[in-house]
Nucleic acid binder design. Structure first.
Ligand SMILES: [Mn+2]
Ligand SMILES: [Mn+2]
Ligand SMILES: [Mn+2]
Ligand SMILES: [Mn+2]
Lengths: 152, 152
DNA sequence: TCCTTAATGTAGCCTATGCTACATTCTGCA
DNA sequence: TGCAGAATGTAGCATAGGCTACATTAAGGA
């Protein structure tokens, strides 16, 4: 997380191609946080509260992994997690969850609009969403809007 | 790499949503290899050989990181790397490089066809490519083919 | 109320992927 | 032919994100 990332040191001149790889690495360091806050928001909406066990079932990792990730989320200011209690989203966490959920839905809808099956759209979107820039997201939205008009 | 991934243990019942997260995690464990073999193939094509320094410039990490990743690639049978010499692709490595390059180009072309700038298309594709299933890749190709026809 | 059991916490292990600092080897030019 | 500097190798450190095994706490039914 606290890596240099954009280096202009003597060892690592930033050269054309490396920019995209840096971007991808940067996105990878935030995508787990994004998926967690989104899942937490979903759980709160669906069942009133987000518990570690339930999160671990959703995400498919052990409760230990969830606990340590939640620690990081707490340090980063996205959640509050009192011992033996549920996980609560901060305002910052809620904002992130909202924008991630919206982006997720747009990506799914876009893939679906290309004729991709619901199943595959959902599977692929979970990974793709984290690498979609604002410009690309806008293009997806635009495409969906066009389709909507044509279908009328 | 050697994690269970698809678990049917008592602790971790596979539940609907977790499948997509597992898929994403699986893809992350292979994407660095994919980007490396592709970059190695490019370097060999462009300058006759792939050296660690040049790779480290391309990818934007130190030569140490490259060296250790190359070790893993060698153990996995994608490259051969004699001490103080260049990096050579095995048949397996060459095959992977080819299919990654093709996929990469399709993703870039597809994004570009949505009106996304060349720059952004290149940036986003570097991350998106690894999360595109066969079905989605086919849909991208199909979309491009349609556009091609319309443009004629 | 108590006690079983589910949920949560903690210790300790692993791999992947970054880094710096330093050692070694190669290579091209004087 | 030597040697300076570039390339490569290696030691050691950090963090993220997986895991198992075991300890502790909370909650609900008998
Ligand atoms: Mn996701
Ligand atoms: Mn998501
Ligand atoms: Mn990714
Ligand atoms: Mn890539």
């Amino acid at each position: 997380m606290s890596h240099n990332s954009e280096q202009e040191d003597h060892d690592l001149p930033v050269e054309g191609n490396s920019v995209s790889f840096s971007k991808t690495r940067r996105e990878h360091s935030t995508e787990i946080m994004e998926d967690y806050v989104e899942a937490i928001a979903d759980l709160i909406f669906e069942s009133g509260e987000a518990r570690v066990v339930e999160l671990s079932r959703r995400i498919g990792v052990t409760h230990v992994t969830v606990t340590r990730t939640i620690d990081r989320l707490e340090k980063a200011g996205y959640v509050i997690c009192p011992p033996y209690r549920a996980i609560f989203l901060t305002e910052k966490g809620n904002a992130l969850a909202r924008s991630c959920k919206e982006r997720h839905q747009i990506v799914v809808a876009f893939l679906h609009s290309l004729g991709i099956s619901e199943q595959t759209a959902n599977l692929d979107a979970e990974g793709i969403e984290h690498h979609v820039s604002t410009e690309t997201l806008q293009a997806f939205k635009h495409h969906l809007a066009l389709l909507h008009k044509v279908t009328l």
